[in-house]
Write a protein that binds this DNA or RNA. Structure first.
Lengths: 144, 144
DNA sequence: TATTAAATGATAATAATTTTCAATTACAAC
DNA sequence: GTTGTAATTGAAAATTATTATCATTTAATA
């Protein structure tokens, strides 16, 4: 993952947030998986070891981490967000519309387009989202 | 808008869907606005003139139209989809994270990247989503 | 015009997320 | 190290967004 735990703690504090044990655990959980996890999935995992940590705390922590850019938020087709630190360098997604599998890819640069848009519209662009949606190989067979 | 009402009716029928008065009204409503509208917003507008059309019908119609590519679905930050026919040519979005304003832009071609990803991963890519998130000019002032 | 599969509206159900609030806790200042 | 304070927590309830169910109606072919 891109940021050490210590670094994350510092960034949190710099923004007036506390670095609580609960938050540490959420961060570790997200970091320990390669996949994108939904809040519910993270909760499940956390809950096994720490049954007293509530789902709401998960939501709140993910919100903050995403806002600070420490984890990456994905808005796949449905109405459910998921999160990863994975290779938390900036990357993009390829999502299977059937099984929900996510493949990350990077190395595609959008900064020129971003600059153009910024100039044309006066927007202060903070982030972007590039996602391709399709069928993974396994699901291509399954669906026919 | 890109498709005439007649064309849409034909496409619906070709896919085994009926072209009902309710659907016609939903289509007209979406087409009559430049903005991206949520299902709820569309319902509100429809409801004024046609109080007997239910929200569920709106959802169902939007689903079908989006599936057939007749309208464009947007997954902005929150957990809420919105729809537009606007300049229903393929386009991308610039979204204000504060007020939700959406600016469409087009003329950016991703087909080469799409082809590369398709080859590399074996995915059958059906669609993509490119969204920039930031603050519009008005909100930049407001936020500070 | 009759037939039939698809669509509708109402209601209920589910899913995802947010709010509220009293109790607790991290951490900066002393 | 103690302390004060603002931030955080967990539980429960509330909202929001969306989907399923089902009896009734209707569009579109034959």
């Amino acid at each position: 993952m891109r940021f050490s735990e210590k670094k994350i703690a510092t960034i949190l504090r710099q923004h007036g947030y506390k670095f609580t044990p609960q938050r540490r655990i959420v961060i570790q959980t997200v970091a320990s998986s390669q996949d994108h996890l939904t809040a519910a999935a993270i909760y499940e995992r956390v809950h096994q070891e720490h049954p007293n940590i509530g789902l709401v705390t998960i939501y709140r922590t993910l919100d903050i981490l995403a806002k600070l850019g420490l984890i990456c938020e994905l808005h796949a087709g449905g109405s459910c967000r998921s999160y990863t630190t994975g290779a938390s360098e900036h990357h993009h997604h390829l999502i299977c519309s059937n099984c929900g599998k996510v493949i990350d890819f990077s190395g595609y640069d959008l900064s020129q387009l971003e600059q153009r848009l910024s100039l044309e519209t006066g927007f202060d662009i903070e982030d972007h989202l590039l996602e391709f949606i399709g069928l993974c190989q396994a699901c291509q067979k399954e669906v026919r």
